[in-house]
């Protein structure tokens, strides 16, 4: 197997979970997750591979966007975690996607219901760039004032996540991975984009 599991599944899984938890609790902060190596031809980086290893098991359903199976990811994730892969994203607990996956017509993900908003898909997003202090401004729980985030060319993703606010508590949570680097944007976060690219209704959502 070229895809390696955690060398110490119990402790490494816990350590990585705490990174994801910290990323989710403080949206837009970057966390280093260089725990596990991935094959050279893989489409996902160590941060998201470790996230799959630490969160997926027999109880979870995973949807992998076309193009991301490179390097035998689908078989590897089954081998290491035993999670089920589903053909349609709306039945998935986790969906491995790129910003391009979310360009119209975007796949339909589970967003939960008002009574059970937790029954939603968590996006694991493969990014080409991820840095603090970018043009996207995040506010909301976990953010003292406002926090900037640079996600590269990912307008489709950010537009999709900005739309969360209008449907709260339903929505999609996103764990962002770029190589060894990890961040998260939960549905509670209000997003405002580079002024020119932001639709009017998104800005009113974030002004409260």
């Amino acid at each position: 197997m070229r895809w390696q599991g955690f060398s110490d599944p119990v402790q490494d899984g816990q350590r990585h979970f705490r990174r994801v938890l910290a990323a989710m609790a403080e949206p837009g902060t970057l966390h280093d997750a260089a725990a596990t190596a991935v094959p050279e031809d893989a489409a996902i980086g160590p941060a998201l591979w470790a996230t799959l290893l630490s969160l997926c098991d027999l109880d979870t359903r995973l949807w992998i966007a076309p193009g991301l199976e490179a390097g035998g990811l689908a078989d590897a994730v089954t081998f290491h975690t035993g999670c089920r892969k589903v053909a349609t994203p709306d039945g998935a607990d986790f969906a491995l996607v790129t910003p391009a996956t979310l360009v119209d017509p975007a796949p339909v993900f589970a967003e939960g219901s008002d009574a059970y908003p937790d029954r939603s898909t968590t996006l694991l997003v493969v990014l080409d760039a991820l840095a603090e202090g970018g043009p996207w401004r995040l506010t909301g729980p976990g953010i003292p004032d406002t926090r900037g985030l640079d996600v590269g060319e990912a307008t489709a993703l950010m537009t999709r996540l900005a739309a969360n606010r209008a449907r709260f508590p339903q929505g999609l949570d996103a764990i962002l991975g770029c190589g060894d680097c990890l961040a998260a944007i939960p549905r509670s976060t209000r997003l405002a984009g580079p002024v020119s690219a932001t639709p009017e209704e998104d800005r009113t959502c974030t002004s409260q």
Binding site: V10, G13, P117, D118, T122, P141
Partner: peptide, 25 residues
């Protein structure tokens, strides 16, 4: 480690991430 089996911990961990994403739910 820490009494619970790993599958139970993962179930609770996934729940915690949802809980943090929907504060107070």
């Amino acid at each position: 480690f820490a009494y619970l089996d790993e599958q139970t911990k993962r179930m609770i961990r996934r729940g915690l991430l949802k809980a943090v994403a929907i504060p107070g739910y």
